[in-house]
Design a protein around this nucleic acid. Structure first.
Lengths: 169, 169
DNA sequence: CTAAACTACGTGCATATGCACCTATTACTG
DNA sequence: CAGTAATAGGTGCATATGCACGTAGTTTAG
């Protein structure tokens, strides 16, 4: 196998082929998804670092926070968080085993309503301190206004993508 | 097993306990991490939907793209993508089994240099068409300028967070 | 030159994420 | 009311993600 077959130095930054679509005349059409994923990885690491002491992952803290507002069914929570039902179901397990979250039957025999136990409330309250430090530290690194603008953009993106992929099938 | 015992009245949705949250006068100090993760989930789903036909996940396409520039070692690639080395190592496996990526020894006996095989190049070329449609569709949903601004912000965030968590230990 | 330090990578474990497919209830319909 | 559609969840499978810890090759201190 020729190791360098396809390599051939690709640094010749093309001088705009003048033939491309108008949209790309401006930007190189980079992958938004990959960028988002990458930034999310780094930012997540940032939070995890701070929240380590709390014994909660960022995702778990988020879950507790969502449930702290009111008991919710799996589907409702999944919709609210843009999470797959089955993912959410499994994400809840460690927290249930840990006794932070419990479930009760809903009006519907199929439904399971999840809610924070007393221990869960306490756990979240403690973790919130760490989360707060993480958030403040992040805003210090990124600049508070920058973060505020980013939040607006993220919210807007969510709104605009909502109808884009409602429920495929 | 029904754990409903302790629950009793699960439907007593408490009327918003007059929450004491006067702290954040300016903004509600929302979680940037959770928002990013949520948007990333939705955007990822958007891409996956389009790329389905290619047989590649967005993450795999990203990997192939990174490697298409030049063969790289695990660590180098991991650094470049803000990915944990071990995560990257495992993400490469399906692509290697699939024959899209292969490895060769580097100058250093410890190192493994990964590169696209001929099949990998082809696979990526094909997938790129789908990716392109996804990207264009996304930009149509979000507005191209919006996306451009978002990219700038994400890049800036990366830059500003770079020194924040170099290599913990 | 040898032992410690460093570097590149791997394994086991735990969680995160979503799809295809399956079961149990409930709602709807003729 | 039987039969079907719609709803709420679950399981198995595959990938994604990162940490703690372990191993082998490399560099460096003495």
């Amino acid at each position: 196998m020729k190791t360098t077959a396809t390599t051939g130095r690709g640094k010749t930054r093309r001088p705009a082929p003048a033939s491309a679509a108008p949209r790309e005349a401006k930007h190189p059409l980079a992958c938004t998804g990959a960028r988002l994923r990458r930034v999310t990885r780094r930012v997540t690491a940032f939070y995890e670092h701070h929240m380590r002491a709390s014994g909660l992952k960022l995702s778990q803290y988020s879950l507790l926070t969502q449930l702290s507002e009111e008991p919710q069914s799996l589907t409702a929570l999944a919709d609210r968080m843009d999470l797959d039902r089955t993912t959410l179901s499994r994400n809840l397990q460690p927290l249930m085993e840990q006794g932070a979250i419990a479930e009760s039957a809903g009006a519907d025999a199929r439904q399971r309503l999840f809610f924070l136990t007393r221990a869960g409330v306490k756990l979240r309250t403690e973790a919130r301190k760490q989360w707060r430090l993480a958030q403040l530290d992040l805003e210090q690194h990124l600049d508070p206004d920058f973060v505020a603008r980013l939040h607006e953009q993220l919210e807007l993106a969510l709104k605009r993508l909502k109808p884009a992929l409602p429920e495929d099938n």
